[in-house]
Design a protein around this nucleic acid. Structure first.
Lengths: 344, 344
DNA sequence: GGAGGGTCTGTAAGCGGTTACAAAGAAAGG
DNA sequence: CCTTTCTTTGTAACCGCTTACAGACCCTCC
């Protein structure tokens, strides 16, 4: 690897001048600048990132905190891949790389005494690596830990979790708006008895979807009896169980809005087991637009999240703060109603 | 952040001694070692990774090269999430973090003139960040670029792509063994006319699956007419098209082994459109065991890959080389036949 | 012609670690 | 008791880059 010193020597200038050419080009005379640039190009010079990070206390790295939930080993993020694509492309565009930090439960973190339950060590890690900021991806039960990150003062952007702190914000879909769209769609197709299967009460997106559901039902002049609101946990089995209980009601709903596609698939299964025809006897609407949604039978009407867009928004937010900007307000990305055969 | 110098001062020893306590503890007398360790713990000292990387030319980072294929924007890795979980947990266990490198097509790489087609810049990036090695995740068309990485001399481990180089190896499933299992299963359930829909010819796992198919058919004493081997591209539409052509044959197969679940789902769709009952009139077996496989109608018999295990194996292989070991031979992880209703 | 003010450049002191080398002290051997 | 050897420690150079500071040079203006 060629160093700044070799270039300086070849060009007959000092190392400071070479460094300036790359960092504050305008302070160097045109002639020297051009010579240095030419030589650097010929030698394919790239600054050593470790040295640069050491000297400037900044590295071109953004940390990614994504812990796999060991209490729910089968749990999968509904759109991790698209999220990463968005994140990565937006970060790349600004010359940043994404560092996936070691997870809790790992020897690496145990060695430094860290776990998501003890975010201090994570924050420490961030400083040691001179990370510019953190992107926090929820794995179902990290919200309390994320709150601690947010308090640390590091630039933090959480995805689908509400956090607050001096330099912390979050990005999520317009969950209440999406839920409202679902309700309006069901009302438009003639339904009056509409139930919902919610996500965990403590989960912000889940709460917002429920709020949106209630608001839109109110606007449509429809009542929401308490037994029409069943709490699930976003996973398929809970959707199936919830649907079973709804079907068993004396006056079962004719339509159900599920706060996740996984639960909606569970609801479809329960309906099938009960011999209910979808969408004729029961309409089902999900949320997420996971790949599966288009492929189940019948294909699922759902609210598509702008998955990559959420990644891009998270990247932008963290970069804004890294570059010294004020913390952006939380972003709520629009969802899109995708009507398929499970509601007609 | 506390530094080594502060600790040295507090303990009344030199910085060299403190450094030794962490790097070569046995060369320091027990008394001093204990004092330093105690003080370090009290001050919650952690070495600065940038400084350490600069001095040792080693960072605790492994690079991840995963480019999203811009020519196939909809393409998704069939098991990225599980792969990352495996990778990350195995790397974490040894104190390494995973650095997702900026992708081609990004400003970051254009700035340094890089793209996957020009791996030199990637390699350069690896050196600048003092990365220990690279894990290469195929996005469908990166094999040529990966070959160049492998030649660079950096420790490289590719997933599902065959590479060779001084310190390059790869990890994949036992593709031929899996395919053979599929054939034996179909033969056992009474099939004689068995066709296959393959992946792209240039793809190593696809080729291996075809080899395994042929070998097992040979062992069973069954012929494989050329029209029973149709090339697909792993994606659903190609599976659907291939199945259509198979159904149109004068003597159509009674069973088909698809080299991916995506294509198998396509085959199911084609069968449904043609009015063929699965599994009675046509048995279908896939490969991968993606989440979808269990949920299509009928649920798909498939060969489950040890997705997280592949990540773990890749991590182990790269760490072996990082720690100076010889390059491990390619790993072929066993697959597991999951029999579902699409073949009975 | 000299003071005042830019512009450009080099010197050198960091950033926070690691480690070669030398020195000091202790232990072992003759 | 002296030499040799081993253990332990400190000094200082170095990793490669950034940047504060000061000096050199050239203009402009009075």
């Amino acid at each position: 690897m060629t160093t700044i010193r070799e270039i300086a020597q070849l060009c007959g200038v000092s190392v400071a001048t070479v460094s300036r050419v790359f960092n504050q080009p305008l302070t160097v005379s045109k002639e020297k600048r051009e010579v240095v640039e030419r030589v650097a190009r010929e030698l394919d010079y790239r600054p050593n990132e470790s040295a640069r990070a050491l000297a400037t206390k900044r590295s071109g790295l953004i940390g990614l905190v994504w812990d796999t939930d060991h209490r729910r080993p089968g749990w999968r993020h509904p759109y991790l891949q698209e999220l990463l694509i968005g994140l990565k492309s937006a970060l790349s565009a600004h010359g940043y790389h994404l560092l996936m930090l070691a997870t809790s439960g790992s020897a690496a973190l145990r060695a430094v005494g860290a776990s998501l339950a003890d975010p201090v060590a994570y924050v420490n890690m961030t400083r040691r690596h001179h990370l510019g900021g953190l992107v926090l991806i929820d794995s179902g039960s990290d919200a309390p830990a994320f709150a601690a990150f947010a308090q640390s003062g590091l630039p933090c952007v959480a995805v689908d979790v509400e956090v607050d702190g001096p330099r912390a914000t979050y990005v999520t879909s317009d969950n209440s708006g999406g839920a409202a769209m679902a309700v309006r769609h069901l009302v438009d197709t003639g339904h009056r008895r509409i139930a919902t299967i919610t996500g965990p009460r403590a989960n912000r997106p889940a709460a917002d979807r429920l709020d949106g559901f209630r608001a839109a039902m109110g606007e449509a002049g429809l009542a929401v009896p308490p037994e029409y609101v069943v709490e699930g946990d976003f996973y398929r089995p809970s959707g199936q169980a919830a649907m079973r209980s709804l079907i068993a009601l004396p006056e079962p709903p004719t339509a159900v809005f599920c706060a996740s596609d996984e639960m909606a698939v569970g609801a479809l299964l329960a309906a099938r087991h009960a011999g209910l025809r979808v969408p004729d006897e029961l309409a089902v609407v999900g949320f997420d637009d996971i790949e599966l949604a288009a492929l189940v039978d019948p294909p699922l009407t759902t609210l598509a999240q702008d998955k990559a867009g959420i990644g891009v928004a998270a990247a932008r937010a963290v970069l804004t703060m890294v570059h010294g900007g004020d913390k952006p307000s939380p972003a709520f990305l629009p969802t899109r109603l995708v009507v398929r055969a499970s509601s007609r």
